[in-house]
């Protein structure tokens, strides 16, 4: 029972991170129908910026804010320089484009910070644990879950109530009509990317807290968040968050229970388990949990 509880809590903590990553994808996808394969690299740059800032002696919370803003700017730059000229080209082109932008960013990160992993300090004791309902949980996991929840709430408030959020929703429905109504779609897209970049940086930072560390391969976690995007439904923010939590939980539970049951085949099975779930979903319900069903018009 304690094991189950322990796994549930750490699964939910991982799930919140997946939800943050997946939400970044969905934000960009809803706004511009671009699936950003470079998202993982934004994650890495956010975490490295944070590591550099804390090493330079900047207070922790200030460093957090700085790296969020810097990553947001980086994402907006990517949108302005690389993607804006290609508006209206086939979906295929943007997929390839973001893949290669990702490779360039990854190289940039390695050039700037090197390939060695480094730890990320925290204001509290990094290895501290607390007792929750009889299960030992890392303070880091709890803080990650809390920060993730706050960020998700902030995102939904932004989308629902702010002027920018309304503009974002309008642009995602129909760019031409939005333009005709006087919404600066270009700037709104830039802002969307900046928000997605900030979500990515936040996910990257909390992902690299103890027991993990900041290294250049952090971006691969974005690959693991893809299934959450698909399972949740590509254009549904709520569905994505649900799916992120669900897949994080499933992954940790699979690690705890399924891996052993499968014998030699189960070694590291939990890393591909989200993909298995995703394939099942695609076979039975291709538009995901809460996504809109694709309608073909002739």
């Amino acid at each position: 029972m304690t094991t189950l509880l322990q796994l549930t809590v750490s699964g939910l903590a991982l799930g919140v991170i997946y939800a943050l990553v997946a939400l970044g994808f969905v934000a960009i996808y809803r706004a511009s129908r671009v699936f950003n394969f470079a998202h993982g690299e934004l994650l890495t740059s956010g975490a490295f910026l944070m590591a550099s800032a804390t090493e330079a002696g900047v207070p922790w919370v200030t460093a957090l804010g700085l790296s969020l803003v810097a990553t947001g700017l980086l994402a907006a730059c990517v949108e302005r320089v690389v993607l804006r000229p290609l508006v209206g080209r086939p979906v295929f082109v943007t997929i390839i484009l973001t893949l290669f932008v990702g490779q360039l960013l990854r190289a940039l990160v390695i050039v700037a910070w090197g390939a060695e992993p480094r730890g990320l300090p925290t204001p509290w004791d990094t290895t501290a644990t607390v007792e929750v309902l009889g299960a030992r949980v890392l303070v880091n996991s709890l803080v990650a879950a809390g920060a993730g929840a706050v960020a998700l709430a902030a995102y939904f408030l932004l989308i629902r109530f702010s002027r920018l959020g309304v503009a974002m929703r309008a642009a995602s429905q129909d760019q031409e009509v939005a333009l005709a109504l006087g919404i600066p779609v270009g700037r709104v897209l830039g802002a969307t990317w900046a928000v997605a970049g900030m979500l990515a940086a936040l996910a990257g930072i909390f992902l690299s807290l103890f027991p993990r560390s900041v290294d250049a391969n952090l971006g691969f976690i974005a690959l693991r968040a893809f299934p959450a995007v698909i399972v949740g439904g590509l254009d549904s923010a709520v569905g994505t968050v649900l799916a992120g939590l669900l897949l994080g939980l499933l992954e940790v539970l699979a690690q705890g229970y399924v891996n052993e049951a499968l014998g030699p085949f189960g070694h590291n099975f939990h890393t591909v388990f989200p993909y298995v779930v995703m394939m099942g979903f695609l076979a039975l319900r291709p538009h995901g949990l809460l996504g809109t069903r694709e309608v073909q018009r002739v």
Binding site: F35, L223, P227, V229, L234, V272, Y275, M278, L282
Partner: peptide
């Protein structure tokens, strides 16, 4: 398009 790209990506991992 997109979903297919991700499924085939999953295929590599599988």
């Amino acid at each position: 398009g997109l979903s297919l790209a991700i499924v085939t990506l999953g295929l590599v991992l599988l």
